[in-house]
Design a protein around this nucleic acid. Structure first.
Lengths: 110, 110
DNA sequence: TTTCTACATCTAGAAAAACTAGAGGTATAC
DNA sequence: GTATACCTCTAGTTTTTCTAGATGTAGAAA
């Protein structure tokens, strides 16, 4: 019985959501699917994590929502990136890049 | 005034500590310095995070401690990796590798 | 018509991990 | 003697995610 590990790296959820929305406006359910797809099933976003995150991002002014219809003809709340969100994405991406490569560098030390 | 970001990726502290200890037994203070050094100052481990982490790792049986003297002739608690700790390091390294590259892959999508 | 499945949103409360902000103590240099 | 760098430790808080649900709709299947 090994220790169970999650399918997310803590601190990356906001960034991943911003990134996905920077490609296309999308609704919550779609964001989960998209992240799962692009990551080849490695990254799994829980609904219980996603919606609170979306509300927080909205509060911060990084995304904005509107009601629309999905491909399946259902009502869903769509989100799109704001200007501030684009900047935030750039900041978070740079931060991730720096720290992730630092971690990888430490892990590669012999 | 942008959002302040930390100098650690959450969830990587245990792994980094195990990794550093896999190279040489070391005391807490030294572990912080070593991580900072190898990461070119990108990763900063707080004392307030490190010691609780060391105690947790000890509880789990992944490291073991003993009292010794440092280069500066001070008493310090040294830690060394156990067999179980070596295995755990391998598990966590593989997990990190998988997830970090998945995140990077998502971030690289156009 | 009912019932099932996949789609879609949301929340309360708990858990995990790290941070803040200290306290306490020692060897050595000045 | 006192300042500084070294060294350990902890209580309480914050941040972030997870668990474990509730609620509801469209369309397919029975």
């Amino acid at each position: 019985m090994g220790k169970q590990q999650s399918d997310m790296i803590r601190g990356t959820l906001d960034m991943l959501v911003l990134k996905v929305l920077s490609m296309d406006p999308m609704h919550g359910w779609g964001i989960c699917e998209r992240i799962k797809l692009i990551s080849d099933d490695e990254l799994q976003v829980n609904q219980g994590s996603l919606y609170p995150a979306l509300h927080k991002l909205t509060q911060e002014g990084w995304i904005r929502s509107y009601w629309g219809l999905t491909e399946n003809n259902r009502k869903a709340r769509f989100y799109r990136l704001t200007r501030a969100g684009q900047k935030q994405l750039a900041v978070e991406a740079a931060h991730w890049s720096r720290l992730a490569s630092a971690v990888t560098r430490v892990m590669a030390t012999s």
